[in-house]
Every structure is written in structure tokens, then in C-alpha cells.
Design a protein around this nucleic acid. Structure first.
Lengths: 223, 223
DNA sequence: GCTGATTTGTATCAATTGTTACAATTTGCA
DNA sequence: TGCAAATTGTAACAATTGATACAAATCAGC
């Protein structure tokens, strides 16, 4: 069985359809169909397999108050489920997974997947790259939250953009997106930026920001 | 050359000294000595090797204002440096690493380490367990920050402790530690706890907390 | 160029948290 | 037991941010 969709996946990229087919044939892989609305995995359930969305769309959600749920994220082809915690000690699903629409999932036993990685250096490399990038992303996000003020977050953010050394950067997102990234409300972010401009730290023109007082900016994200 | 200290390391556990020696002999590993105060790696520098602290102690630090630095963490034997980002795309040191005292580091080329993992399933499994646990830890911490109020964080924290289902938990850290974990100040945390007790949500007796109003508590960490 | 949608700027008031300081209590150890 | 250190409780005020609402500016597509 061939899965052309896997060519674009993080975990199988770089392998041809035929190679993927060959590798999978050696395992007890299977493809399972989940009708729209079906529960695929329950939060807290032990993870035995790697599951990859082949078609359709699924979502992760958290249970909150009795009966109510909070949607966390959509997972679309060719993404995998819970791949970042797959090999953790006593790995369990962090969220409940439900099919948004009729969906097909490729299921590979965890141990089989490990064997596959040992057998193909590209597969192993793919997974390691993926998981390391994830860890890097998470720890970057976490570091952001350690700057408690909005001005501190913004100062740190623009200082890390390309061009900061030359004192001129282009913000690559909308204020709304930036506010969500920081975990603050949009008006609060706008106010903070306005105050920083008023204080002479920066000069803002649309998406372009001139860093006028580097020392003052770095003071905002100290200690 | 034998490295008894590696028996307790996350990456080499489960392997005997002799096995580790055998595996390492096949690589171009080396042991390097760094006198106290020496810079071992510079933030932003590309990562070519896995480095493990064999003896001594090193620290990661970030540069802030001109000349000043912020200490991030100490790394002691038998911990590894930047192991969570080692295989990321264009992996670079997230922090500058400096020897606290005279230290010895085991250095294994990244590609060699990958080859070792392919050759020994335990090694691969060790690394995967480590990195997945790390990702899980980070995303747990990150989720905490999404509850914006202190009461929300505390309610979520005690709800996840063993015994919460029975309505009685023991806090396993001091208020100071908990406040740091939440990223808030200690008096603010104490006030929040005091108010929750006053509101009848919990009853506190030293380290022991009785959860009196589960529904009220879960309302604190909704959406 | 026009127009509707998106993005941004701004204001007001309430809620939350930080800061600082000090007292009370508990713990660890001699 | 007794004492010093660590932990916890509490208070007053300042600073920051959230919530909400609305206007201005900009953008995208026609």
C-alpha cells in the first residue's frame, strides 16, 4: 500500500513512496477509518502507537468543567498525533483526540517504529530533527514568559529579529498574532508599544520599527 | 578509557562501563579539560558535538546589557550540554557555557553519536525517552502560563496532585518554590491562597489542602 | 479609485499583581 | 529545650494589565 501524502510529512520526508512501502511492509502497520465525531484517543490513555493523519482532520481537546471541552488544536494530514511525547516514560495522550470529519489514520506500533528508525538513518534523523525543533520552540516560548512585562517581551522580541543590530527591524506578524504569541490582549500590546515610542525607545512606522535606545530596550528585559 | 560516572547519566544508563567503553572506542570521542572560568561554548555557535560533563561544574548564561550576564542554570556531572536541541535544524547553543570550576567534558561528534544510537537500541531508547520527557515537561510548564491568574494556576496545580480526586492533597514544595514555578511573587501567591480559603474553595492546614469546592476550583482555570 | 474587511490607535474603568515591610509561626539543629 | 533560620501571613500602595468599546487607518480585491 502506498501513501503519497507521507512524502510531505515531517517524519517520512526524503523517502520515496516505494521505500516507505517497503519499510512499512515489515511492520504490523494498519490503516483505520474514524467516522466524523469518533473519539480516537482519550486524554490520559497510554500511547502504544504512532498515529499519522492520512486524510480528513482531527482535533485535540481538553475536558474542563463537567461536559464542557476546550479545543486545543487541529491536526491535519500528514501530521502525527502526540509525536513529541511518544517515547516519554509512561507516555500518555495529553489531550483527547476526536475526528472533526471522516478521517483515516496510519497506525504503527511504537516498537515497530523504533525498529524502522534503527533500520533507516533518514527516518531516525527526521524524528530527531522534529523533536529537537519542538523542544527548542517550546523552550523559546517559555523563556518569553519569563519577561513579565509586555514591554519586556516586545523589547526582547524586536531585539531578536534580523536587522536589530542595525537598529531597524520589520515585525513579521500582526499585532493580534503578536499579542497571542505573548499571551496578552491586543490593546495592552498596542498601549505598551505606544508608551515605548513616547519614551523615545523606538520609532514605529507601520511594520517597521527603529530601535533608538538599545540600552533602554535591554533594560526592559533584564533579570 | 572507562567513565563510571556515565552509569548514572540519562543517556548511558543501563549500559555497563565495559559496554560504554566498547561503543566509544569506535568513535573519535575525546575528553577535554577546561580550567575554571574558561568559555566552553558561545551562544549562537553551531553545535557539532554532544558534550557531557564528567567532572567539575559548568553554567549556562545569557548576555544581557553590555558586559553583564544572567546565569541560567548549572550543569553538573553527568549531565549533557544542549542535548535537547542537539539534532535540531541548524542546531546552535542557546546559551553561553562557562566552566564554574576546573571541569572535564566528554565530547562525541554528533554524527558519531547518531551512529552509536543506531548500533545500540538502549542508547537510542535512552535519548528518545529523555527528549520526549523534556518536551512533555516544557509543554506542561507552558500550559501553566496559559492560566493567567494566580488562583487559576494554584487551582490547576492542586487539582493535578495525587489525592485531588479524594479532595485532600499535600503541597510538595514551599510557597517560595511554588511562586517561582508559577512565575509570581510569594506574597501574591499567599494572598491568592488566602482569598481562595476565604471564599470557601479550599481549607489549608500547613502543607495540607482540602479541596472543598471542586466545581468552583475548576471554574478558575477555564478558558 | 472604491468599498468592505482587517488592522491599528486610543480611552476608561476594574481587576490583578508587584513591591515593600514587618510580624507570626514553624522548622532544623545544637 | 532553646535559638537562629526559614517559612508563612498580612497590609498598604503603586504599577501593570484586562475588558470593552469605538474611531482611524490601512489593505485587498474588484
Amino acid at each position: 500500500m502506498r501513501f503519497p501524502v507521507l512524502n510531505d510529512s515531517t517524519l517520512f520526508r526524503g523517502l520515496s513512496e516505494a521505500e516507505i512501502e517497503n519499510l512499512l511492509e515489515g511492520t504490523g502497520y494498519r490503516v483505520r477509518f474514524f467516522p466524523s465525531g469518533t473519539m480516537i484517543a482519550l486524554a490520559g490513555e497510554e500511547i502504544h502507537s504512532l498515529m499519522i493523519v492520512l486524510s480528513g482532520s482531527v482535533r485535540g481537546e481538553m475536558s474542563a468543567l463537567a461536559g464542557r471541552t476546550i479545543k486545543i488544536e487541529d491536526i491535519n494530514p500528514p501530521q502525527a498525533l502526540a509525536s513529541a511525547v511518544l517515547f516519554g516514560s509512561g507516555a500518555r495522550y495529553p489531550v483527547t483526540v476526536v475526528a472533526n470529519i471522516d478521517s483515516e489514520l496510519l497506525i504503527i506500533n511504537k516498537e515497530d517504529y523504533l525498529t524502522l528508525m534503527i533500520g533507516d538513518r533518514r527516518l531516525l534523523s527526521n524524528y530527531l530533527t522534529f523533536i529537537c525543533n519542538k523542544a527548542q520552540f517550546l523552550s523559546g516560548r517559555l523563556r518569553f514568559h519569563s519577561f513579565h512585562t509586555i514591554k519586556g517581551k516586545f523589547a526582547h522580541y524586536i531585539s531578536a529579529l534580523p536587522g536589530a543590530a542595525m537598529g531597524r527591524v520589520i515585525i513579521d506578524r500582526t499585532q493580534q498574532e503578536l499579542a497571542e504569541y505573548f499571551g496578552v490582549t491586543r490593546p495592552s500590546l498596542a498601549r505598551a508599544i505606544g508608551e515605548m515610542e513616547h519614551d523615545g525607545l523606538i520609532a514605529v512606522d507601520r511594520r517597521e520599527v527603529r530601535l533608538k535606545d538599545m540600552k533602554g530596550l535591554s533594560r526592559l528585559y533584564e533579570v
